[in-house]
Design a protein around this nucleic acid. Structure first.
Lengths: 252, 252
DNA sequence: CGAACACTTGACAGCCCTCAACGTGAGTGG
DNA sequence: CCACTCACGTTGAGGGCTGTCAAGTGTTCG
């Protein structure tokens, strides 16, 4: 079941040695809160660091894992964008999500013992790989780590329905952009200028609409002065109005 | 922030004493796998049983918890149906899900420390309540329990998009019915004859469509011989064809 | 330079939402 | 037993949003 081009199961090339800069390297990691929390002593922190495998760089189109692969590990995105998707029985792709630095993939594979979806790099991607059996065992000893895992998983339950039928195409696109903006901002990137690392087709697929609709909506947003977009470079010009549109979807 | 009619935070009335029949009582519980797994010894099982509070019966309209309440516990539905929902800023209800016997609610509250949604009984509901701090502490000692919690949460991540725009009203209704049928069957109920414990309005809200559409689709299903429906009593007549319709949504 | 691909733009049609009216069943009180 | 009420459910007519189809433009890469 293991196709070529899958980086995850292998542990030879692609694994970077842990350089001495581990502490700063991990400061933007999804587990930094767990690592840096006062409740975690130095030996515990070392245990966690020993557990990590640095994977990458992955190039666009390279897969992190594929649907059906045995579940062995979760991974935190350190750099780049990872797209998760499934292929339905008609051969059509279904985009499930885009995962930015600081976000964790693979959590939905615990139940079932196999990855239920594919994960592919959209640009140059760096990952931190955590063997799940090992991190679960470690979590037995470290209440903070267990709690952190619970929170990570809980956060992913009941994600906002960005593609619900009762929201207009404009609202969903606005919500998508605002979501990206906020997630990037939370990791220290600019919330107003960023790059869409995914194609219009991917966005359309994710939002469950036609690529033509994505094109038209973005065009209209630009004409209305909400943003400036050239190719895949986005600059948000009127954040308040865009957020106002997104409110209908994001509900807050 | 605690409204009247919320059963959860209180521990006086509504809590049933644990009768001697605990073992058989729990055989259909969401945690039965964890309890009965060979890896869990007797003392561990007793620890878990001591942890449980039996809540109920709750009557239609009574709330298990409300949005904003401090998160203290998760709960397994033992009997009846629980509806989870949110109220958006326009005062409109958004149905998130229906939870049948054997299913767990409250897992999405771990992150945030407050319940992000309301949970209300649709009919007569019995619950098993687990203090989350206590069960998390117990999970430190019991690897199987920790694993079970991980699996429960993992299962709820990335739930099928039953209300995506690219599926027709017919397909989504079929998927909804097939989903109910399978979940009921998994708990020993009849997969062909069951009762819709929720109103048409609730179904429509959940599927993100108009109540009129729900009515029309069910009517058409009956005319086409797919099922027989009288009030809220459903009898599925042509399971294969209904599953065929649902395939477009459920992808399997 | 040519091909493949991504993106844009326009015309048209279909699904489903909205609005409106009516039917039905349960509960209540006379 | 009936009338009444009220919520729920059904049925019909019309319109808007967006998907589909088609063609054209721009970009990348061999």
């Amino acid at each position: 079941m293991s196709q070529p081009g899958v980086v995850f199961p292998r542990t030879g090339p692609g694994i970077m040695s842990d350089d001495g800069d581990a502490l700063t390297f991990c400061s933007t990691c999804a587990f930094s809160q767990a690592c840096l929390s006062e409740g975690m002593d130095k030996s515990a922190l070392m245990d966690l660091h020993v557990l990590v495998e640095h994977v990458g760089p992955l190039h666009p189109g390279e897969h992190v894992f594929r649907e059906g692969d045995p579940f062995t590990a979760i991974a935190a995105v350190r750099a780049g964008t990872v797209k998760t998707y499934q292929i339905d029985r008609n051969g059509h792709e279904q985009v499930l999500g885009f995962h930015l630095p600081g976000e964790v993939i693979g959590l939905n594979a615990i139940h079932g013992d196999r990855y239920p979806c594919n994960a592919v790099a959209l640009d140059t991607v760096m990952l931190c790989r955590f063997s799940f059996p090992k991190i679960a065992t470690l979590a037995q000893r470290l209440p903070n780590l267990q709690q952190h895992l619970f929170r990570l998983m809980s956060r992913d339950i009941g994600v906002a329905s960005l593609f619900a039928r009762d929201n207009s195409a404009d609202e969903r696109m606005a919500a998508f952009l605002i979501g990206l903006s906020r997630r990037l901002a939370a990791r220290g990137f600019s919330p107003r200028r960023f790059q869409l690392t995914m194609s219009r087709t991917d966005i359309a697929n994710y939002l469950r609409q036609a690529p033509e609709t994505v094109s038209r909506v973005l065009r209209r947003f630009e004409k209305d002065g909400l943003l400036h977009i050239k190719q895949r470079d986005v600059e948000i010009l009127d954040l308040p109005r865009l957020e106002e549109l997104a409110l209908a979807v994001l509900r807050d």
